[in-house]
Structures are given as C-alpha cells and as structure tokens.
Amino acid sequence: MKTGSGLRRKLALGYAVFGGLIALKIVEYFVGTRIHSGGWAYLAILAIVSSWLVLYFFMHIYQLRSGRKDHD
C-alpha cells in the first residue's frame, strides 16, 4: 500500500467522500431553507449520515475494533 497507485487510490476515495458530503450538505441546505414543516427529521438523518461518513472514512473508527496499524 506504500506505492504511488495506493496513494492515488486513497486520495481518490477521500475526494469521493468529500463529494458525497458536499452533496448531502446541499440537500440539507435545500431542506432547511425550503421545507418548513417536519424538515427537522430530514435534517437529523442527513447530519447522522454525514457524520458517519467522516467517522468511518476520515477518522477510521473501525480501527478501534480491528487494531490495524495504518489507516488502510
């Protein structure tokens, strides 16, 4: 995993996750500014999904269980 292709693959994953987070944020903004009744439920779901993406892909929360050395 210490090759150039491995680095590119990991960086590409980061960009993909970031794209997903921005997309969720745009949906969240749309829900928050356009839906005035019951929008809080959608906002809560979007916040939980977004935070899970960060916790899993950026913070590597799975390391706590697997005990892996690096973040592959």
Binding site: E28, Y29, V31, G32, T33, H36, G39, W40, L43, A44, L46, A47, S50, S51, V54, L55, M59
Partner: peptide, 14 residues
C-alpha cells in the same frame, strides 16, 4: 463532525 450537527441546529431547523 461537531459542526455537522451545529450547522443544521442553528441555521436550518425552524
């Protein structure tokens, strides 16, 4: 992650 919850709580929920 903390901001992901603060933003909708302060700016969007109504």
């Amino acid at each position: 992650v903390v901001w992901l919850f603060i933003f909708p709580t302060l700016y969007l929920v109504s």
